[in-house]
Deep mutational scan, measured.
Amino acid sequence: MGFKLLSKLLVYLTASIMAIASPLAFSVDSSGEYPTVSEIPVGEVRLYQIADGVWSHIATQSFDGAVYPSNGLIVRDGDELLLIDTAWGAKNTAALLAEIEKQIGLPVTRAVSTHFHDDRVGGVDVLRAAGVATYASPSTRRLAEVEGNEIPTHSLEGLSSSGDAVRFGPVELFYPGAAHSTDNLIVYVPSASVLYGGCAIYELSRTSAGNVADADLAEWPTSIERIQQHYPEAQFVIPGHGLPGGLDLLKHTTNVVKAHTNRSVVE
């Protein structure tokens, strides 16, 4: 069995187990497998329904001669939608809004960016022009300005110390501490036991640490421990890039980060 097929099978099995364990909360999309990078042309966006009122959005972007996937989250909030992270750029984010209108038909009224990198804030200006209120932590807003990236308009308070959590509509926002970046936030959907790890969490097929220019490698494993301790009931975990899975993604990420750190020390 090929690795790609095995990865998709694991996603399907995880979703099936969740649907059985929580039949009222989960209505997993039966329309197909989780979209992969090879299936999404740059400039297009796919939506994948995880649970009743919960979707991931998947886009792709060219970077350094390669094409990478990027995940975000959409959560229903009454007759409105909360968006977590842009679709990595203005063109993708405009396509995301169009796809949401086509498939869901509810307005996106608020959006949260989970850290300051372009795959999370690139497209904020498109959201703002569409009347979406954009939010991020003060740290993310400051770092985005320093980096020359787009800056969300509103500040999220109460997320300055490791372990801080605040309720934001249908989700809980959690600051686990520094990891992929010093400002990275985690998003949890309690009604569906869905954990969105953003770039602080890796997919299972990833074996290298990737972009760690703004990471705190020493603190990252401790931050992941905080996530595990705060959300032990999480059933569906979405990484910032690639295929979702279960809580095993947290341990896998820790292993990859520690291996990278150990290699760096040896070198």
Results as ranks from 00 to 15, higher is better:
residue 112 V to L: 11
residue 164 D to G: 08
residue 257 V to P: 01
residue 180 H to D: 01
residue 133 A to S: 12
residue 190 P to V: 07
residue 29 D to W: 14
residue 172 E to N: 03
residue 134 T to M: 05
residue 2 G to S: 13
residue 191 S to D: 13
residue 236 F to M: 10
residue 250 L to R: 02
residue 207 T to A: 14
residue 92 N to Q: 07
residue 36 T to P: 12
residue 183 D to R: 01
residue 241 H to P: 03
residue 222 T to I: 11
residue 55 W to G: 02
residue 167 R to I: 13
residue 163 G to Y: 05
residue 253 T to L: 01
residue 208 S to N: 14
residue 99 E to I: 11
residue 142 R to L: 14
residue 14 T to C: 10
residue 220 W to E: 03
residue 245 G to I: 01
residue 143 L to H: 07
residue 12 Y to W: 11
residue 209 A to I: 08
residue 139 S to C: 04
residue 89 G to A: 01
residue 39 E to G: 13
residue 81 L to Q: 00
residue 147 E to N: 15
residue 123 G to Y: 03
residue 196 Y to F: 15
residue 60 T to Q: 08
residue 12 Y to S: 10
residue 252 H to N: 08
residue 216 D to W: 06
residue 124 V to R: 01
residue 221 P to V: 13
residue 23 P to F: 09
residue 77 D to K: 03
residue 267 E to F: 08
residue 195 L to K: 01
residue 111 A to Q: 08
residue 56 S to E: 15
residue 70 S to A: 06
residue 99 E to M: 13
residue 110 R to D: 02
residue 78 G to E: 11
residue 62 S to L: 07
residue 143 L to Y: 09
residue 199 C to Q: 02
residue 259 A to S: 13
residue 195 L to M: 05
residue 238 I to S: 03
residue 153 T to K: 10
residue 190 P to K: 09
residue 137 S to V: 05
residue 50 I to K: 03
residue 14 T to H: 15
residue 111 A to K: 00
residue 84 I to L: 10
residue 207 T to K: 14
residue 222 T to E: 12
residue 232 P to A: 10
residue 43 G to M: 03
residue 12 Y to K: 15
residue 171 V to K: 01
residue 207 T to I: 12
residue 94 A to D: 11
residue 180 H to A: 01
residue 242 G to R: 04
residue 1 M to A: 04
residue 148 G to F: 06
residue 30 S to F: 14
residue 152 P to H: 04
residue 168 F to Y: 06
residue 38 S to Y: 12
residue 92 N to R: 04
residue 134 T to P: 01
residue 127 L to I: 03
residue 145 E to N: 11
residue 83 L to S: 00
residue 112 V to G: 03
residue 207 T to H: 14
residue 216 D to H: 08
residue 168 F to K: 02
residue 18 M to Y: 15
residue 14 T to N: 09
residue 18 M to A: 14
residue 220 W to P: 03
residue 15 A to K: 13
residue 149 N to H: 10
residue 91 K to C: 06
residue 163 G to K: 05
residue 32 G to I: 08
residue 262 N to F: 09
residue 186 I to C: 03
residue 211 N to W: 11
residue 193 S to Y: 15
residue 174 F to K: 00
residue 147 E to F: 13
residue 56 S to M: 15
residue 142 R to Q: 13
residue 262 N to D: 13
residue 108 V to M: 00
residue 137 S to Q: 08
residue 18 M to P: 07
residue 12 Y to F: 10
residue 95 A to H: 11
residue 172 E to G: 02
residue 260 H to E: 14
residue 132 V to Q: 00
residue 146 V to P: 06
residue 176 P to T: 02
residue 140 T to E: 04
residue 39 E to S: 13
residue 258 K to R: 13
residue 95 A to V: 09
residue 153 T to A: 12
residue 111 A to W: 02
residue 98 A to C: 08
residue 251 K to E: 13
residue 15 A to I: 15
residue 194 V to Y: 04
residue 135 Y to R: 00
